[in-house]
Amino acid sequence: MMNKKEVKHIAQLARLGMTPREEERFAKELSSVLKYVGKLKEVDVSKTEAVSHPFKVENVMRVDEATKDKKKLIEGFLQVKSVF
């Protein structure tokens, strides 16, 4: 359940301006949605791992051209021409 004080706090975090009347409306509507999603507490997830995606995915990265030439690497740092 969300009261007006919480609505104000969340609105500030989300950078959303709102009137006092809207604060009241959001408190009411969000409380009813939160009551519905409270159902999630009924599911036993004690042995379940969280997922953020429908499949297992890995980052796709291009070939690292800069560190390809091992001779330019000194202790893992890339040697470049001095700037100054």
């Binding site: 999630l40 791992e49 997922v51």
Partner: peptide
């Protein structure tokens, strides 16, 4: 309570 739990329920759905 919300985001992490929902992610776990998503695993249940899959």
């Amino acid at each position: 309570a919300y985001y992490l739990r929902a992610q776990k329920v998503r695993a249940k759905i899959i």
